[in-house]
Write a protein that binds this DNA or RNA. Sequence first.
DNA 1: TATTTTTTAGTACATTTGTACTATATAATA
DNA 2: TATTATATAGTACAAATGTACTAAAAAATA
Lengths: 205, 205
Amino acid sequence: MKKRKKHILEAGLELYNTLGITNVSQRTISDFLKISPGNLTYHYKKKEDIYRVLYFEFVGQVQEKTRLFLNGKRDLKSFANLIEEWFFYIYKYRFIFLDFSTIIRTDPTIKENYLALVEVRKSIFLKTVNELINQKSMRPQEVPHEYELLYKRLHIVSDFFLNANVMDRKIEKLNHTEHKELFFYALFPYLTTKGKKEFLKLFAL
Amino acid sequence: MKKRKKHILEAGLELYNTLGITNVSQRTISDFLKISPGNLTYHYKKKEDIYRVLYFEFVGQVQEKTRLFLNGKRDLKSFANLIEEWFFYIYKYRFIFLDFSTIIRTDPTIKENYLALVEVRKSIFLKTVNELINQKSMRPQEVPHEYELLYKRLHIVSDFFLNANVMDRKIEKLNHTEHKELFFYALFPYLTTKGKKEFLKLFAL
DNA sequence: TATTTTTTAGTACATTTGTACTATATAATA
DNA sequence: TATTATATAGTACAAATGTACTAAAAAATA
């Protein structure tokens, strides 16, 4: 990608993340980069183009990490690793999740892609849960849809925990451990004695 | 409250909920009500005034329900009732949670109030958990901060599950059972045998 | 009824925003 | 070097938006 084109993306990401997508106009970005508005529209004709590219950049990066996980061994530890990486990218592209409904409303291609992504994540989660059950680290389902609902909650927590953090300025820096804990403690009560041992070791409790 | 003033609030709520707060201008509301822009600004001088009033309307209503819960007996059933009522109001005023970061960013009084509200909800939740433990319906904490983290997840799920639902048009109508399930299934694995029996009866499984 | 207050309509205006257009400069290429 | 393609600056403009202001209408009150 051209240098200028990349700089615009970087500035966009930075500004979207800090000011919120609704407070960033094309001029905000061109002023920030000290380039003319004409130059900006030359590279990105419509304002949606910028955050659409950023969104798909995000998707590309998490998909790559997910691919690596699927090809490796899928135990509790490497799953924890994957989740940590997801959190990293969710934080990096946090404007997507902070201004989620605005973005979804204005861009059907993003909406469609996100919908598919959620399904992929769900099936990976449920597959991983099944493997953990086979490995006797997790107990089988006790009530119908138990793990589907668990996924749904974890999906919401993963994608929108940043909204809760806007409140206490925690948003300004990334706290790996905190987010990982938030996620994995949700798994804890479903673990077997064996699984709990692994868990405690993993989180050094 | 004056009739016109109330109508403006109702129209605002309706339009914010369906179009998103960023797509609703003062003129959108005055056009909707077929009144002049001047009339609107006469009742609400600044645009923030409208959704600020709506936010505090929401807070007043959930606080009233919460007060009733605290004065009654605090078992699993009435707690389930309270949560259902919370969901009702979260849905009614859903624009607050769909455009959360926009609202928080523009109105410090809302931010401050929400922060306090979250703390109140947390202490109610933890108190209720303690009572359920005393009633032998819930098991004691196994790892440090277990129930605090559980609260945090439930708080995020409660306030932002609608964001996940924008995707599949589920947002267009309220589904009580679904949301209640989403919330209470999170409690299930922490319940004792006694608690699980109550739970299954409550949700008619 | 006369007067005052409240409500409403209509208009005006500065600002912001997205985007198109033109001209110039820079880089690439023949 | 001459020509062509790409990149940049600068400007223009319509639409939208928040909000102020004025005058008229309606309601309340004396």
